[in-house]
Simulated scan of single mutants.
Amino acid sequence: MDWSKTKTIFIFAFLVLDLFLVWQYSQLVITNKYKNIQDASVTDQFKEEAITYPPLDDTPDLPPLKAERHLFTDEERSSLKEQEPAFKEQDPYRLAMKLVEPVKVDKDDLAKADTFVSAQLISGSEYVLWSYNRENSTITYFQRVNDRIVYQKSGDKQLGSIVLHLNENREIISYEQTYMDTADEEEQPQDTATALEALARLYNENDLKPKSEVTEMTLGYYTSQGQDIASQSLQPHWYVEINNKDFYFVNAYDTQVVRPNQQKKLE
C-alpha cells in the first residue's frame, strides 16, 4: 500500500470537509443576520404605523398531530352523575346530555361553568374556555393537546369541543361534547414561523392595519374539518386577536392566513 498517497487523500478529504463546514457556518451567519434585519424592519414599520402587540416569546418547533375522533364507551357514559341522555339514540362519537339539576352561572363570572366542566365532564380539565355567546345562550370550550389549544371552525360538529346550553335564568341545562385522541405524527417537527413573522404576514395581507392593537397571540393548533372526519392531521397555527374583536389563524409552517369570518364573543 502506498501510505504517502493514502496520507495525501486523507489530507485532501479533511480539507474539503473543513471548507464545507466553513461555508455552512457562513451561510448560517448570513441567514441569521438577514433574519435580524428583517425582524428589525418589521418592528420599525409597526412602530411607525402605531401597531402595538404584546411581548413575543420564543417560538418552539411543533410537530403536526394526528387526531382521531374519540368513541365514548358505555363505561364513560355511565360515569356521568346527575346527567341523562338528551336523545334516545346517541351518536357514539358525540355526547349529548341534559342535567338533572341545572347549574347556575353568574352574570359576570364564568367560574362556576369552568368548575362544572372540569369536575363533571369526561376529561373536562383538558378543555379551555373559548367563547360565551349571550345571544345563543351558549358557552364553548376547546380541547387542549400538549398544553396547546386546538382551535375550531364554528359549527355544530366540532372535533374536541364542549358546548354548554343555558336557559333564560343563566343555568346550564344541557351540553354536547366531542373529544379527540391525538398522537405526534412520525415526521420531524418543521421550522415554525415566529410570532413576528405571523404578524408580518397579516400586515402584508392588509389584515393588520395601522393603529391596530394585537390584543392576544397564542400558538396552538387549528382544524376546520369537524367531527365527520374520522382521522386528520393538525398543523400548528398562530391565533391572533386584533382590537379585542377580529381574529385570524396563521399557519405556522407556511404562514397562510385563515379568516374564520366570525368574532370571538366573550362578554
Rank of each mutant, 00 (worst) to 15 (best):
V117R: 00
T192D: 12
E171A: 02
S174M: 02
K264I: 13
Q262A: 12
D191S: 12
S26D: 02
S79H: 02
K211W: 02
S231G: 06
W238L: 06
D57Q: 14
E197Y: 11
L56I: 08
R259K: 15
D184E: 14
K112S: 08
S4A: 11
A86E: 08
A193E: 00
N261T: 03
Y151E: 09
Y25S: 01
S26K: 15
Y151C: 05
R259S: 10
D108F: 13
V145L: 09
I11V: 13
Y127M: 03
T6F: 12
Q90G: 07
A200I: 00
I173V: 15
Y222G: 01
V100N: 11
E126F: 05
Q38Y: 09
Y175P: 01
F72R: 07
Y127F: 14
A67N: 06
A183I: 13
T182E: 11
K35C: 04
S212M: 03
E168T: 14
A252V: 04
D228Y: 06
N261W: 09
A252P: 01
A67I: 03
S131N: 10
E267M: 08
S137R: 13
K104H: 12
D191Q: 09
E75V: 12
Y179F: 11
T223H: 03
A13G: 08
W130M: 05
E48T: 13
E76H: 03
L121I: 10
Y132W: 12
Y175N: 00
K211Y: 05
K245V: 01
P210M: 07
D91I: 05
I9F: 06
K98M: 15
M180P: 10
A40F: 07
I242E: 07
F247P: 01
A111M: 05
A111D: 08
A50S: 10
Y203G: 02
T215V: 07
P55I: 10
N251H: 05
V258A: 11
I11Y: 09
S231I: 07
F249H: 09
P54F: 12
T59M: 13
N206G: 00
N261P: 00
